[in-house]
Nucleic acid binder design. Sequence first.
DNA 1: TATGAATGAGCCTTCATTCAT
DNA 2: CATGAATGAAGGCTCATTCAT
Lengths: 189, 189, 189, 189
Amino acid sequence: MPEVVGVRQAQAQRTRSGVLAAAASIFVDQGVQAPIRDIAERAGVGVGTIYRNFPTRADLVTAVYRHQIDTCAALAPQLLAESASPFTALSRWVDAFVEFLVTKHGLGAALGSGDAGLENLHSLMLDTLVPACATLLDACDADDELSPGITAYTLMRAIGNLCITGTDYDQADAKHMVATLLTGCRRKE
Amino acid sequence: MPEVVGVRQAQAQRTRSGVLAAAASIFVDQGVQAPIRDIAERAGVGVGTIYRNFPTRADLVTAVYRHQIDTCAALAPQLLAESASPFTALSRWVDAFVEFLVTKHGLGAALGSGDAGLENLHSLMLDTLVPACATLLDACDADDELSPGITAYTLMRAIGNLCITGTDYDQADAKHMVATLLTGCRRKE
Amino acid sequence: MPEVVGVRQAQAQRTRSGVLAAAASIFVDQGVQAPIRDIAERAGVGVGTIYRNFPTRADLVTAVYRHQIDTCAALAPQLLAESASPFTALSRWVDAFVEFLVTKHGLGAALGSGDAGLENLHSLMLDTLVPACATLLDACDADDELSPGITAYTLMRAIGNLCITGTDYDQADAKHMVATLLTGCRRKE
Amino acid sequence: MPEVVGVRQAQAQRTRSGVLAAAASIFVDQGVQAPIRDIAERAGVGVGTIYRNFPTRADLVTAVYRHQIDTCAALAPQLLAESASPFTALSRWVDAFVEFLVTKHGLGAALGSGDAGLENLHSLMLDTLVPACATLLDACDADDELSPGITAYTLMRAIGNLCITGTDYDQADAKHMVATLLTGCRRKE
DNA sequence: TATGAATGAGCCTTCATTCAT
DNA sequence: CATGAATGAAGGCTCATTCAT
């Protein structure tokens, strides 16, 4: 019994990964509301397989982005520790967050849609990224570097919205506007 | 044939207006992606009539908002003339723009969606509001009140995105974030 | 304007009738749970047409049987008036009810299934046939011809069940068993 | 090979029993049309195991009820021997039969459905219960206590139908109606 | 021109059944 | 033998769009 994980589980895991990859790819092309069939087709599996692994669309969306979300959240304390000032840390973290969002076509729109079925993703953001961001904001606040009334959730939602790109408003524009927003968040001397 | 505009044309015009009013009303309730049938029903006409007058959904959306867009654009020179500073005028104009967006449920999302069919609305924005906004930005720039690199189109697109509301991110949040963005646009002394 | 009902309405009515006929036919073959697509195909219409005319399956089932249900209910007072005794009237009415049920394959099962979606049909029975049957039972009771504890609803439900035919239990058997049940309902001297 | 029945066979038998118990339990909750997967889950086995042991759903249904059916059949001669009259014996046996049916949610409907796949169960009834019931009917007939034309199969089928319960027609109603039917079977003096 | 019935493509979802391990 | 992941047929439902009247 040299293998703890059997061949079958390994295969299942590979299938799961394939679905995730296909979904990520399709999400880039069509957004998170793409038909399940399209994802199944690109993954080379039956629709039933997707439903087995991800009962709801939100489960799939969440799974696709979970790893990157966790990574992004983990960045917050690290940046806070190594940056010259809390605001610098916030700024860098926001850069990372934007980088995450901007490469996920349709995710920003999904987050902002208020779609009932996407509550899991919403919750994931709430539970993972919001606390991370809040830590940074608190540090800025303690340093008197932050305008009053800026909350982590609202700021992230705004950033998410700013990262909804389209014709004539690309990733560079989004980053510029996010930077501008952040400047606006800084308490003026 | 004593009348230049016949009774028929007058009736047709009335029908068109009725459709526009119904569409505006439905858009508030359900967003710009609402079923055509719902609009037809509220207008008291057949769906065919809507398709005759507005072949694509974008045509309808555009027509619904054209008047308000024109009004908003016309506000720019007026505010510029009566405000203490160009930046104040810009700020007030943005308030008006936000007010316009924020009361149109789903319009912000529509503008930001990159939806191919909504190019007409996009064009309308480009042709009407962007020049109006640009006038204000130019004036601010001449006054050295503006950070470099802010263009009218990008700024408006960003504002449009910030006005996409949803659960836990309401109109007040949107207005707050837009104001913050605007602060960020101001050249710091 | 010689026609009150336009050509279009007439056509629509014909379509509706065609759907009802097709549904009735399919119900005989497959029971009331038959796929909507099958009914649409036999009617030569699209599925949308069926959903337009009968939003829920229960609406369709109800419409298919409504006329006959009404006719059956109307029979009760008539039989009561012209029969020698109340129990004779009841007996004849039950014959008519059985005749109705027995030619509708699957209806009995549908009535007895407790299916939530079939509440409309259930209600139709309750509101139309149960009172008719109750009138006859009351008359029998007044004549001391009825065993105690027999209610219209339960009796009809039982009759409905007895009319669920199948292999080696045909319409003749159903009628025989219903007659036997009715005999059992008669107060023994 | 000192054991006639190996460990493997014993294990297989235990698996089979577990499936039967799970199926019986699920049938009570959801009826005999419950998803195979649900049964497998409750039994703690894979669906493949169920398909191996019971290739068709009918095989499973049959196996689940075989023991109780046999018990019920065996009751007939016993009741005939110890009852005051053949009709009393019949009446008691029917009580037992109803008790069997009434606690098996959906079984009555399954029996009455004419479902092609349930022929095995049908056969089991035919081969086991019908002869048992026929014995009682014959005894009643010999005693001149039975109306003419009542056959064991038809009577049992009718009883099975009467035991299909649902909203507003419960087990008590079913028992009442079966008792009434039986009264109707008794030759009137 | 206006109508709205009809159409059917398209998406969702469930579950019986197979088969490689 | 047992497993359960994978499959995909089947059916439900919605709406954009057309077209005969």
